[in-house]
Amino acid sequence: MTVDTRAPALLPAHPAFATAKVLWVRHWNEHLFSFAIERPASFRFRSGEFVMIGLQGEGDKPLMRAYSVASPSWAEELEFLSIKVQDGPLTSKLQKIVPGDDIYLGKKSTGTLVADALLPGRRLFLLSTGTGLAPFLSVARDPEIYERFEQVIAVHSVRRVSDLAYHDELVGKLAEDPLIGEQAAAQFHYVPTVTREPFHTSGRIGELLENGKLFEGVAGDPVLHPETDRVMLCGSMDMIRDFAALLEGKGFKEGSNNAPGDFVIERAFVG
């Protein structure tokens, strides 16, 4: 094991952002990693929301990007899932952080991938590609979700098996979680799928909907009903666009914080 002996990277105070310490970093593969930072005592958020985080940019200007919080609203730390872009303005630096480093954190969270933007229902489908899994890690670990819905189905589509971040925790139905372990054991379903390597489930999310694999082990009809099913979408713009159109064709209505509906997407990420 290589031990990092450099001094922690500290950031100057900024009037618009808080400064938080990096607690841990986990590299899943060469282009995907997770990390957690301290949670300021004053920071509040709803499970599924996003916040601005960043590092020092050119000169004195912080370089900030929107990241969904992967930890639930009750957690004492703030967890994030990120891609690595070697020439990316922020991620080229962010992927090199180590425990003890400073990171900038926005003082307020926001977003529509929250339970409040959905009408009551029986089944909640969390459909994600790539790092779009992040807000659903937050939602799926929130006790309130299991009070609102009888079943919670998290679907994660990636290109390679190594891209299935949090696979083992999700396969284990979040059994180690102190607050929702028992509820998740009975109500949580995890559907990982890989599109470019051999895996027990393959194909894009739309294909799983058509062939019924999306509903394996899930009680109820193997179709989506706007009367009983609620859907959250996060990931590639193509997936969100296509699935939103499919849902609207089935009679689902998009929801928002001001007008709850049958499905939600994060408009801030898709334009």
Rank of each mutant, 00 (worst) to 15 (best):
A185W: 07
K93G: 08
W74M: 05
K21D: 12
G172L: 10
G249V: 10
Q187A: 15
I205L: 14
N258P: 04
D142Q: 04
T110M: 08
V25G: 05
F80I: 13
L214Q: 06
H225L: 14
Q183W: 07
K93E: 05
E58V: 14
V22Q: 02
L208E: 06
G59E: 08
I265M: 11
H156V: 12
S256E: 04
F125K: 06
E147F: 05
A9V: 15
E266Y: 00
M64K: 07
V85T: 12
G48I: 01
P62C: 11
Y190A: 07
G217V: 13
Y104A: 05
D163H: 12
S92I: 09
S71Y: 00
I103D: 01
N211H: 06
V194T: 03
I37A: 12
F43C: 08
R6Q: 05
S256G: 10
G255I: 10
P135R: 06
D87G: 03
T110H: 04
D116G: 10
M239Y: 00
T2R: 13
F149E: 05
L170R: 06
M52G: 04
S47R: 01
A70L: 03
V218N: 03
G217N: 06
L233W: 00
I53D: 01
G235Q: 12
F45L: 08
I37T: 15
G130I: 10
D229V: 15
L118S: 01
F199P: 03
E169Q: 10
T110D: 10
